[in-house]
Nucleic acid binder design. Structure first.
Lengths: 194, 194
DNA sequence: GAGGCAATCTTGTCAGTGTCAAGTTGCGCG
DNA sequence: CGCGCAACTTGACACTGACAAGATTGCCTC
């Protein structure tokens, strides 16, 4: 309850005002709820309660329920873009795509559910474009071979996205079992893209 | 508006009672809403209004909002199973998987969003198992070659599912463009599984 | 260093929703 | 003929998202 650090030096970024970092608090609480019970279980009032603020406080940071989810999606695409950029080659990019979905299930789920998002939001569209660029670059880095690069991109993305989605929806619990999903995907991609 | 057939012969199945086939009416209305605006936009009271019944009527056929969605998912898995059974080979099964997603977007969406469903529902689990069997049979029909058939199944499913999902979430509007998605998937599968 | 200003948060309210409980209707079957 | 049961209605309650209007507080300027 009592402030742990009363030193006057402001850490680095803007520490907003008089209550705390509400925006971030609500975001992380929302991510918890979504990861546990899906976006449908998310309630602004519940998030406000968890953060110890009044029921209308969230609306000031994210206007809407849709606004909150859109912010989450934008953040997700940003994270995904940097993740893909760190991959040395295409196959590894796929592995990290799957890892991203497992480590950020809430982001992932929201990112690919357009019905929840404000499609024309600027932050969202730019972040998504950035992630798209990262994916395209990964594809073009591979030896062009004889296939249409755009088709190859769709193939790689479909494979990784399908695997990740089925994984999150517990549809691979049987086939994959106790094995490490990333390793399964690695061998899968290797046999397919040989 | 007026009943077209007033003949006393009951068609074949149980024509319920004094109002009409409410269960089916609510199901199809729900599918319309979900296809248009996603499962989040679905309201039992709205469905009741469309069917011209009182707000609590749907609860008698599907207990819950979750119950309604679970029924939709079960129906979807049933449809998917028969669809897959009709395919001559594995690649064609993939094509029909994609076609299924396009023709039944509401079913597809709900089927793979576990947060909306009653996971232990009997109808659902049996229908899902049936679809799983159909998929497995399609995979085992192909020349076993040198790869683990279970891995091959996961690969094929991931590819088709990822493609379908990305298609429905409008993430392939750019790369695929005006081309026929099924044809794109066909060539994609051909180059990948050569 | 004092005043004001804008961002942040609160309080109050409204329509809409899911769900439960209890009543009503009407068909079918004995 | 009447009785039972499934299908539906009516009513109520707690909860939610959204909006409007007011209160608080940190910061910036002069």
């Amino acid at each position: 309850m009592a402030p742990a650090d009363t030193d006057s030096t402001k850490p680095a970024a803007r520490r907003p005002y008089h209550h705390g970092d509400l925006r971030r608090a609500i975001l992380t609480a929302a991510l918890d709820v979504i990861a546990a019970d899906g976006p449908a279980a998310l309630s602004l009032r519940d998030l406000a309660r968890r953060a110890g603020v009044s029921h209308a406080a969230p609306a000031h940071h994210f206007k809407d329920r849709t606004g909150l989810l859109t912010s989450i999606a934008a953040e997700g695409f940003g994270l995904l873009a940097t993740t893909l950029r760190e991959a040395p080659d295409l196959k590894e990019a796929g592995v990290r795509y799957v890892r991203f979905a497992r480590e950020h299930p809430a982001h992932f789920q929201v990112m690919f559910t357009p019905g929840l998002l404000r499609a024309d939001d600027l932050e969202l569209t730019t972040a998504r474009a950035l992630a798209g660029d990262a994916l395209r670059d990964s594809v073009s880095a591979v030896d062009p071979g004889d296939v249409d690069p755009r088709l190859a991109g769709v193939a790689a993305w479909s494979l990784a996205h399908g695997f990740a989605t089925l994984l999150l929806s517990h549809n691979l619990d049987g086939p994959v079992g106790a094995q490490d999903p990333e390793e399964v995907f690695r061998t899968l991609a290797a046999t397919l893209f040989r």
